[in-house]
Design a protein around this nucleic acid. Structure first.
Length: 305
DNA sequence: AATTGTTCCAACCGCATCGAA
DNA sequence: ATTCGATGCGGTTGGAACAAT
């Protein structure tokens, strides 16, 4: 038990050290006395309510380092949960909700930071096509990613592309563009990376890896593991039911668009290291036609999904 | 260099659900 | 059966950072 707490504290200390350094350099760090009150009776009876909170001098807005440390210290000793009483016991002038959010979205030691990887992007697109805006459900399949982060990713990046396509993110046009161009593109990218790293052979079979999860690896659970594997295997997978395919599939041509024009910028999306298409559907640099999947591949993918 | 516009994300808000009393 | 607090979820917003002019 004590070892667990120690290791938790150490990892938290390490992960926070950089953040603290930044705050210190910015000169915005708070007094460390703040939020480090002594022992608290961690009983099970509710001790504070929203009404009580209104009476207190509650803090809002960005969290300070002192508050973060107080929260971390308290949780490392007492664990998570009972957020309202936790806030008071930890000496934080915050609502329980605020503490919970800060912990889950930022301070938790297993929170992943940094860019969403192509694998994660693909999984988000796949799971969102199944479940819609069920962010927390989607987040459970992306270890270390929070529902908030995925939600932000969707709103800022994905919806941006829908806007540029002048269609609603929930429209069939956009869904088709995602399904038949964006996702295959990501799968291609992932597969290329796997081949170059030797973790997957050109025939689609797995390399000689030992199967242990790598940092950032997406959830391999049966429920969602198909997202990348189905796309990267050459073996067609029949999809019984196919309820979300709806049977009839709209092609970009139906909207008077070529395949490239239908996703002006999706192909060079984010940090994939790919050239981008401009709004006229032409490559910005170099000839990348070889990177696009053939129509046959796309329709094969449709069958697999 | 200054101003304006855009993007991104941490945090907040309101509502729904759950469970204990 | 009802009430009420705790928790979780999805939508929204404020403002910092960055880009464009």
């Amino acid at each position: 038990m004590s070892n667990t707490i120690l290791s938790l504290s150490l990892s938290l200390s390490l992960s926070l050290s950089l953040k603290i350094k930044v705050f210190v350099e910015l000169g915005s760090y708070p007094s460390m006395e703040e939020g480090t009150r002594g022992a608290c009776n961690y009983d099970t009876t509710p001790t504070s309510t929203d009404h009580d909170n209104e009476e207190m001098d509650l803090r809002r807005g960005p969290w300070t380092v002192g508050e973060d440390l107080a929260l971390i210290n308290y949780i490392s000793v007492h664990g998570e949960g009972r957020w309202n009483s936790l806030a008071g016991c930890a000496g934080l002038k915050r609502t329980g909700k605020s503490c919970r959010l800060r912990w889950l979205n930022y301070l938790r030691p297993d929170v992943r930071r940094g860019n969403i990887t192509p694998e994660e992007q693909l999984l988000i697109l796949e799971l969102h096509s199944r479940w819609g805006n069920r962010w927390s459900k989607i987040a459970r399949h992306l270890p270390g990613r929070t529902d908030n982060e995925i939600k932000n990713y969707w709103r800022t990046r994905v919806q941006k592309h829908a806007k540029r396509l002048e269609c609603d993110v929930g429209s069939k046009k956009f869904k088709d563009a995602v399904k038949f161009l964006w996702m295959p593109r990501l799968a291609e990218r992932i597969r290329a990376a796997e081949w170059s790293s030797g973790s997957r052979k050109p025939d689609g079979s797995l390399g000689s890896g030992d199967g242990t999860a790598c940092p950032g690896q997406i959830d391999p659970s049966p429920e969602c593991s198909g997202a990348t594997d189905r796309l990267s295997t050459s073996t067609p997978v029949t999809h019984e039911g196919g309820e979300d395919m709806g049977g009839d599939v709209t092609r970009p041509e139906d909207y008077g668009l070529s395949w490239q024009e239908s996703v002006p910028d999706l192909v060079g999306y984010d940090n994939l290291g790919l050239p981008e298409l401009d709004l006229q559907g032409t490559w910005r640099d170099g000839d990348c036609s070889g990177n696009l999947w053939s129509m046959e591949d796309i329709w094969l993918l449709q069958q697999q999904l």
